[in-house]
């Protein structure tokens, strides 16, 4: 990752978020370690799909670990923390995937959190139409964000905005969360105006991309639900549990 330091044009909130950001190679090593443990999956299940499900679960666990270290979030009671994560878990997973592809920088393949590169032709041949369509739609967003020159400070700030995107009326601690939402919006606006003055509407363009992240995450949840109904998901799957949990 690029080193970032404070200074003019770097809002304090973004600086703190950059310092909280986990190192990709540490996340990769942890997840690879978990995946090497014997699977408790169904014997009739294709090994590759079961592995992808565990990979997605472990990626979400890394996201929960990140959220627990985040300022404001760590001050909240568990009920509010759960409400926030239940609202945005699929968006955080989609955005995590999309940003990894921006860093990967190859249009013809996708990079998994474990470091493996999968050709899009392989996805087309083996993934099934629902997953293939999801991957292609995510690739379109990757191109859009690449064209917008999304950088790491903007990525961490957008991730924080996704985490705090729940309407405060569903939370016990309204004021703390509302304050976090306002501070993150201001930080992102200030940062983009200072670092990309030639692109006056970058802030609005980035927020529009979050609408697409939300829409993609809905499609991803439909895919998961379809797999669940077809009895293809592993037992004790975290994402299915998130999918079935009642929203606030």
């Amino acid at each position: 990752p690029e080193p970032f330091s404070g200074g003019p044009g770097m809002p304090e909130l973004i600086l703190q978020l950059l310092q909280l950001e986990p190192e990709e190679d540490q996340v990769r090593a942890r997840i690879l370690g978990c995946l090497q443990e014997p699977a408790k999956g169904r014997p009739d299940q294709p090994a590759l799909f079961g592995l992808l499900c565990r990979m997605a679960d472990q990626t979400f666990i890394s996201i929960v670990d990140w959220a627990r270290r985040c300022m404001v979030f760590k001050e909240l009671e568990v009920a509010d923390q759960m409400a926030l994560l239940q609202n945005c878990w699929s968006e955080l997973l989609v955005f995590d995937h999309v940003y990894r592809q921006i860093q990967h920088g190859k249009e013809g393949s996708i990079l998994l959190v474990t470091g493996q590169e999968v050709e899009l032709s392989t996805v087309a041949a083996q993934a099934g139409s629902m997953l293939h369509s999801l991957v292609l739609r995510a690739q379109e967003l990757v191109l859009q964000l690449h064209a917008l020159q999304l950088d790491r400070p903007e990525f961490v700030c957008l991730k924080f905005l996704i985490l705090f995107s729940l309407d405060v009326k569903f939370l016990n601690n309204h004021s703390l969360v509302k304050d976090a939402q306002e501070k993150a919006n201001t930080a992102l606006l200030d940062y983009t105006l200072c670092h990309y003055p030639h692109c006056g509407d970058k802030f609005q363009q980035l927020l529009l991309c979050l609408v697409e992240v939300r829409s993609l995450s809905m499609q991803a949840k439909e895919y998961l639900y379809h797999k669940h109904l077809s009895n293809e998901m592993p037992r004790n799957n975290l994402l299915i549990e998130m999918l079935q949990a009642k929203q606030t």
């Binding site: 565990r54 472990q58 627990r68 994560l85 239940q86 998130m242 009642k246």
Partner: peptide, 26 residues
């Protein structure tokens, strides 16, 4: 124990709850 109330995701609760030291096995 990470037994959760109806509708509450038990694994997520276990990941977040400060009173639980053991991480859930997923």
């Amino acid at each position: 124990s990470c037994r959760a109330a109806a509708g509450r995701p038990a694994i997520l609760y276990a990941l977040l709850s400060p009173s639980l030291t053991a991480r859930p096995s997923v």
